[in-house]
């Protein structure tokens, strides 16, 4: 079986450059010390949220708006926990760190690796995977911020890494689901929100709209199931 370190290698190659992109963006757009970038990697540990944070810091956004924006941007994590409820059960102090470190990439590794029956042993493997991932991320943030402040480098457009990351994750989600409908629901909700709402409310508006459509979609599917069941028993 692969060691935890080997399992995390793809994340090493993803997190260091992405963390560096964040670090470079951070020092290019803000006047804070370079060490603030790795500090954010230590206490926040979220790629998209930290890149969004640069823009919010630059405009000195209201803290309530920051809180809302972070909740909305990270709302997909609400649903990651659902598939790990049983795996993390009884992990004690470890559980807090496992939950804290549940990024997209950690989630993918933890849910796709084969598991034995020894819960405690599996949880310590989970813990090491999470910790290695965070180390890569913090190192990336520090490198980017450190180099960004010493090397002349035109970083215009580097924030596109976030769009590219979302496109990649969308393709991965599609490959896992093999269904187009969720993508169309998300894309059209976003289109409607952008057309109808001011920039600050577009993300939250689109998420609420999309969740509403998924609820309707669920009612239809569930109703059909229970009707089919009812007929079956009748």
């Amino acid at each position: 079986m692969d060691s935890p370190f080997r399992l995390t290698l793809p994340v090493l190659f993803g997190y260091v450059p992405l963390g560096m992109a964040f670090g470079v963006l951070f020092t290019a757009q803000l006047d804070y010390g370079w060490w603030v970038a790795p500090l954010m990697g230590i206490v926040i540990f979220a790629g998209a949220a930290q890149i969004l944070a640069v823009g919010l810091l630059a405009t000195h956004a209201d803290l309530l708006a920051v809180f809302t924006a972070m909740l909305v941007l990270n709302s997909r994590h609400l649903f990651y926990g659902l598939s790990l409820l049983n795996q993390f059960a009884g992990a004690g102090w470890r559980k807090l760190y496992l939950i804290f470190g549940l990024t997209d990439e950690t989630y993918s590794l933890l849910t796709s690796r084969p598991r034995g029956s020894d819960f405690k042993a599996e949880q310590s493997v989970d813990l090491r995977i999470t910790f290695y991932n965070q180390c890569y991320w913090v190192v990336g943030c520090a490198l980017g911020a450190g180099l960004g402040s010493t090397i002349e480098f035109d970083s215009t457009g580097i924030e596109f890494a976030l769009v590219a990351l979302f496109i990649v994750l969308m393709i991965e989600q599609y490959k896992a689901l093999q269904q187009q409908l969720p993508l169309w629901i998300g894309a059209s909700s976003a289109g409607i929100a952008v057309a109808a709402l001011p920039a600050a409310n577009q993300l939250i508006g689109a998420i609420i709209l999309a969740t509403g459509v998924l609820l309707i979609n669920y009612r239809f599917t569930y109703q059909h199931h229970s009707e089919a069941k009812g007929r079956g028993h009748g």
């Binding site: 769009v163 998300g186 976003a190 689109a206 999309a210």
Partner: peptide, 10 residues
């Protein structure tokens, strides 16, 4: 999947 598509578009 829905959220990813939504983020991509926005």
């Amino acid at each position: 999947a829905t959220v990813m598509a939504l983020l991509v578009v926005i």
